[in-house]
């Protein structure tokens, strides 16, 4: 199964993204974290579970930033299970180039996340099989 996780320090952003995930049938009940460190704790705990994760990750957050979280996840032996979508309020070319260095980062989205973005997520080759139309 594919578990959807939203990591953002802004409550309203989490509210919007949750609704969008549900409305577009990407996840039925996405998990959300306001702090990256909490998300990492959860993912450490779940690392050996037999599931994959779609993670919407904000870059700029107080405490652990999105980059630091990426560094940790990139070390995981089952990192193939992580499908990370970077979500940021303003696209900086430098950030995008940086993100491309991580194999687990699959896409880069400028806020707000749109219906078109959701459709694209579902078409990502690594996870598209979860959304096969019956």
């Amino acid at each position: 199964m594919l578990e959807v996780i939203i990591i953002d320090d802004d409550q309203i952003v989490i509210f919007i993204q949750k609704k969008m995930m549900v409305n577009h049938h990407i996840g039925t009940n996405p998990l959300s974290f306001k702090k990256a460190v909490k998300a990492l704790e959860y993912l450490e705990k779940e690392r050996n579970a037999d599931k994959e994760f779609l993670i919407l990750l904000d870059i700029n957050m107080p405490g652990m930033s999105g980059w630091e979280l990426l560094d940790h996840l990139e070390e995981h032996e089952h990192k193939g299970n992580y499908h990370i979508i970077m979500v940021t309020s303003s696209i900086n070319k430098k950030d995008k180039l940086e993100a491309e260095k991580y194999s687990i980062v699959k896409s880069f989205i400028e806020k707000p996340i749109s219906a078109a973005n959701c459709d694209k997520i579902k078409e990502l080759s690594e996870i598209s099989h979860f959304f096969e139309k019956v």
Binding site: D10, I12, V13, I16, Q17, K19, M20, N23, S89, S90, E110, K111, P112, I113, S114, A115
Partner: peptide
């Protein structure tokens, strides 16, 4: 500032899109 400005604006845009759906 453009980053700081963009954050609340992006939220408003996202909320409006949601509103249209719901």
């Amino acid at each position: 500032q453009s980053h700081v400005v963009r954050a609340p604006l992006a939220k408003i845009m996202g909320l409006i899109e949601l509103l249209k759906l719901e």
